[in-house]
């Protein structure tokens, strides 16, 4: 079943110079039990999309979409409060900024307890404090923290980053979400801790069927840990499909460049040889090119590219480029 189905999501920022389109008509679907990766460079709009889905962007942002449905239900027809209720119940998010997920001024036990919704409790009200504590301990065990005593009274800053990241996952899964959005969950962590966390996320996906949207700018990590992939460049969706297919045969010049820039994906590249790199750098929101936003950096650009390409498909493989790399049959 398709859980999340978003079509033409557009996110614009109000500025003195008018509206700036940070995210431009992006489509995103996530099925039950799917792990989808969302990759793109810094500033490409990954976090904005995540925040728009969970509804935490402030009023300066204008969000529109042609479709926004959850488990078959059209959320656009509901009031804002009703939307929030459904999303709050079913979707959990781990924020890129740990301070948004964790309160630096409260001890861990208190934060964990607060993250357990009343609907998860069975006892009558006098039994609840005890039940909450028991559940908090169980949550920590689930994320692989055995010694709960040692951390219950600690504050986040007293704990290693890897432990904090696990606690954030524990808090996120407390309400048994159907979808977990993890925004750069491991970027700050060391490689061995990173690997541990991915195993943890994968186990929740397998045991509980929890879907995951894994956001990162590291193609390597996303590629290893997802089944499907969406690639963003500068607020535009450039390619989407099965991770393995995209890696094997990218259709969009940006995805192609991204793959070629990672030495791990280039087994034939001898050590110390130059990596493939697109010239130039990502434009800022104030200086977005018209049409295809990759235009000024794209090796294949032609004059047609001043018109924004529409999303096209080859079976389940979506791309938006006037001149895809493998000619369309």
């Amino acid at each position: 079943m398709i859980l999340l189905d978003i079509k033409n999501l557009t996110i614009e920022l109000e500025t003195a110079e008018g509206l700036i389109r940070a995210v431009d008509r992006v489509n995103l679907t996530i099925r039950e039990g799917e792990i989808r990766g969302l990759v793109g460079e810094s500033g490409s709009g990954k976090s904005l999309i995540a925040k728009a889905i969970v509804g935490v962007l402030n009023k300066r942002w204008h969000i529109t979409a042609d479709r926004f449905s959850w488990a078959g239900q059209d959320l656009l027809r509901l009031s804002y409060e009703e939307q929030r209720k459904i999303i709050g119940r079913d979707i959990a998010m781990i924020y890129q900024e740990p301070s948004r997920s964790m309160d630096p001024t409260a001890p861990i036990l208190e934060q964990l307890i607060e993250s357990i919704p009343d609907s998860e409790l069975e006892s009558s009200w006098w039994g609840r404090p005890f039940e909450r504590r028991k559940k908090a301990i169980a949550l920590l065990h689930k994320v692989g923290i055995r010694d709960h005593q040692a951390i219950f009274n600690s504050y986040p800053y007293q704990l290693p980053e890897g432990v904090c990241q696990k606690i954030m996952i524990a808090m996120a899964i407390a309400k048994k979400p159907k979808l977990l959005i993890a925004d750069e969950p491991t970027t700050a962590l060391e490689s061995t801790t990173q690997a541990q966390l991915f195993r943890l996320l994968a186990s929740f996906n397998q045991l509980k069927g929890m879907s995951i949207l894994l956001i990162s700018h590291e193609l390597e990590t996303v590629a290893r840990n997802t089944q499907t992939l969406s690639v963003l460049y500068c607020g535009q969706l450039v390619e989407a499909g099965e991770t393995a297919t995209i890696l094997k045969q990218p259709l969009h010049p940006y995805t192609d460049a991204l793959i070629k820039s990672v030495p791990e994906f280039q087994p034939d590249l001898a050590s110390k040889q130059p990596l493939y790199a697109l010239p130039g750098s990502i434009p800022t929101l104030q200086h977005l090119p018209i049409g295809c936003r990759l235009g000024p950096r794209c090796p294949n650009a032609r004059k047609e590219c001043v018109k924004t390409p529409v999303l096209d498909r080859l079976q389940n493989h979506y791309f938006s480029c006037h001149f895809p790399l493998q000619g369309k049959k």
Binding site: E41, T187, L275, A277, S281
Partner: peptide, 17 residues
Amino acid sequence: TALDPSLRAQIVNLLLE
């Protein structure tokens, strides 16, 4: 470590050169 892929590739090439 924290650089974006296309940027990282550019800097790596610069260092190698």
